[in-house]
Design a protein around this nucleic acid. Structure first.
Lengths: 149, 149
DNA sequence: TACAAATAATTAGTAAAACAATCATTACAT
DNA sequence: ATGTAATGATTGTTTTACTAATTATTTGTA
């Protein structure tokens, strides 16, 4: 691994990861807005996770969405205001809430879902299964490296 | 491309891109803090770009760092406060500033640089040149797809 | 039982990102 | 030459990220 690589390819790689990540969020947000959905991409990620696994506590939700606790608190606040989610008291542990989709939230997930599927199709168009697998593996490899630092 | 793929691999891919991007920034920020540098990762990105090409206007700087104009305005404000950068009036076009590294900023880039190289080595350890090239290509492919939406 | 440690969630402060709107200056078009 | 459009930068607002500190509750231990 020579210096050229460090200054060229690898330098770009970090930039390219962040750039694609940002652009995905930008375009996805644009689609949500165009289709008339009054949520952010990060709020969508939380709703989608609740749709897969309803009634999680906030820390579990934070872990599964890779956000931290204060961020989840605020996203839940906003989703509660919008009526898509509610905090249910947990009698077994009064420190903890169960975060649950409301009927309205459940309907929203059903309405938004197809647009997200469509978005993903366009985003990954032209990449074959092997390329997607390699991409995933490399990203996971980098992630694991980082966690070991 | 079947539905399973859309719900599994491709779904994860977007998440994995964002997760690696966030983790890179987190770890890099931690290193900057540990080493006693009083700047954020985003401020570092701007300093590094100025080091490569000093005296750019803010819009050029925004494009080369993939940030928008208001964000650059605020980052430059902070870097000016810290004395690492200055806004030089451009007599040819009084709308425009030349953003220049100060001596202090130049020294900072020299001091931080080696730590960033070291960080990148660790982040990409175990990936060979072909894997890095594939990663780059896939990320660029996705980015291009997104720009066509 | 009582006290300390751990856990779940919240709050506060700063930084960054997105978007829209605004202001000053410059370029262009009649 | 004047008016309009385009450009560079700033400001305002909302959301998210990170850190640190705080509160309430539960767990573990002496």
């Amino acid at each position: 691994m020579n210096t050229d690589v460090l200054l060229d390819v690898e330098h770009m790689t970090g930039f390219l990861i962040e750039r694609s990540s940002k652009r995905m969020k930008q375009v996805c947000q644009q689609i949500l807005k165009e289709k008339g959905f009054n949520i952010t991409v990060d709020q969508w990620v939380v709703l989608q996770e609740l749709n897969k696994n309803d009634g999680q506590g906030q820390i579990a939700l934070a872990n599964s969405t890779f956000k931290d606790a204060p961020t989840i608190t605020r996203i839940i606040d906003l989703l509660c205001q919008k009526g898509y989610v509610e905090r249910i008291n947990n009698p077994d542990d009064r420190r903890r809430f169960k975060i649950c989709l409301t009927q309205s939230g459940d309907n929203l997930v059903s309405d938004v879902g197809p647009h997200i599927i469509e978005f993903r199709k366009k985003a990954y168009a032209g990449l074959n299964q092997a390329q997607l697998t390699n991409l995933k593996q490399s990203l996971n490899h980098i992630f694991d490296n980082l966690n070991a630092i």
